[in-house]
Nucleic acid binder design. Structure first.
Lengths: 252, 252
DNA sequence: GCAAGGCAAAATTTATAAATTTTTTTTGGA
DNA sequence: TCCAAAAAAAATTTATAAATTTTGCCTTGC
């Protein structure tokens, strides 16, 4: 992995994630990599779109070399598809991939949560409690009337989930879970019914926390897996509708 | 992921792996990537070594851009460490990482094997049988007297293990397992007692196959996990000895 | 006299610009 | 309408330039 100059060691999750966003990267390639990645994850660069260097150099204000490096990194993460001699494309989405990613996430995060709980320490449990508290008191939508995505909620949501599995004792596994989270984030962004109003996500989080603090491994894992299934089901429903409305059935 | 022009779809594993090696890649960057990767995995480029562009351009006969792209891909796979503004290094090894990778591989491949068996089909079981047969009749060492690594055995060994988990129905999970296998291969290459003469690896493979064909999930998973533990224990022992002999204790 | 700090030169990494190769599109003819 | 050749566009690679880090030497202070 790339290491920026002053990056800190494995420690306080909150601090680490906060630092990442504020810290200005040392090289253009890394800066472009991060901007490209968020643009892809938030589907400002829509799935399947061709990423022409000409367009990218203008839009990201960088030369070909740093862009090429960024694209090559994203290629290994399967967010960008590089076809030899014919350029780069944003990885297309598909119902099939959504199902596969969700299934995998359930398996792997279930495993990771089980191990996290096996290694439970007071510090970890307290960090989880705090993360949940912060998430709980942050509004899901910026506008109480109609849904408007709140980036702060998204950030805290991710931290909470990362913390759940972050005590499992395997950095490779944590990295894999992060990658799955990235790849799934695109589908959430795509879903128009982003608020999930009919569903009480907050309650699900609270239930998971409760089971973890009660050291009930079976229940915690069951709830977490159910949480991901629910999310995927709502998105699946949404995407199918969207596809039907816009006649994009073939694309999915 | 990168896709070469005529790459085939998910299908016959043996054919796929064979094709990969024979097919000439379309771009220099990909060619360099593959050569660099094997040189790192077989520790011809030793852990911790600085990868200077000057050296690399001469040794791999390519310009800076394709090399830089290759290094950036390897960086995402955690086989190369890129320090901003100060170059690239082969990822160092450590007993700690070996333990972490092994632990993770046991968890994840155990999971994947369970799912593979849940999806068992006659075709899959027959492919497994054939892969094991081929592995069994290939000598571990090219020289019957003293150990000399047989690349064909290595290839067939990898195919057998890949096939075990290859029916799990999750391409992301399979990819993650491949990455773990890559990162562990370096440790096996480093171990001087490569032959594992005191241990009957062939018998372990046969036992795993038997349990799989008998549809005994618990036993198969147990044997596979044990197999990886054994391997790691031998390598750990070896590396500790090597470290003690050469006074490299600090490096590990 | 020796160590610490700082300045300047050298080496190295990073980025831009230009050249080359490959693919795609267009055009003209059968 | 289909095929082939030429032109255009785009991707890949090399070459050149800029920025950063490292190294060595010199000065300064103890």
């Amino acid at each position: 992995m790339y290491r920026k100059s002053g990056e800190m060691e494995w420690g306080n999750m909150t601090t680490e994630l906060q630092a990442k966003s504020s810290e200005s990267p040392a090289t253009l390639a890394t800066s472009v990599y991060e901007r490209l990645k968020t643009d892809i994850l938030e589907t400002r660069l829509e799935p399947g779109r061709k990423l022409q260097l000409r367009f990218l150099t203008e839009h990201y204000d960088a030369g070909q070399t740093p862009l090429r490096e960024a694209l090559n990194r994203l290629t290994t993460e399967d967010l960008v598809i590089g076809k030899e001699q014919r350029g780069f494309f944003v990885k297309p989405v598909s119902l099939e991939e959504l199902r596969e990613l969700t299934k995998t996430r359930r398996w792997v995060e279930g495993l990771a949560l089980k191990e996290s709980m096996a290694n439970a320490t007071p510090e970890w449990e307290e960090a989880l409690l705090v993360a949940h508290h912060r998430l709980e008191r942050t509004p899901r939508s910026l506008d109480p009337e109609k849904f408007e995505n709140n980036p702060e909620w998204e950030r805290l949501h991710r931290i909470f989930h990362a913390l759940l599995i972050g005590n499992c004792g395997s950095r490779p596994l944590i990295g894999f879970c992060e990658q799955l989270a990235d790849r799934l984030q695109r589908y959430r962004a795509l879903s128009s019914r982003k608020a999930f109003r009919v569903r009480n996500v907050a309650q699900e989080h609270a239930d998971i926390l409760k089971a973890v603090l009660q050291r009930d491994v079976g229940e915690a894992v069951r709830l977490l897996e159910h949480h991901y299934s629910q999310t995927a089901d709502f998105i699946l429903e949404d995407l199918k509708n969207a596809a039907a409305l816009h006649g994009k059935a073939a694309a999915l």
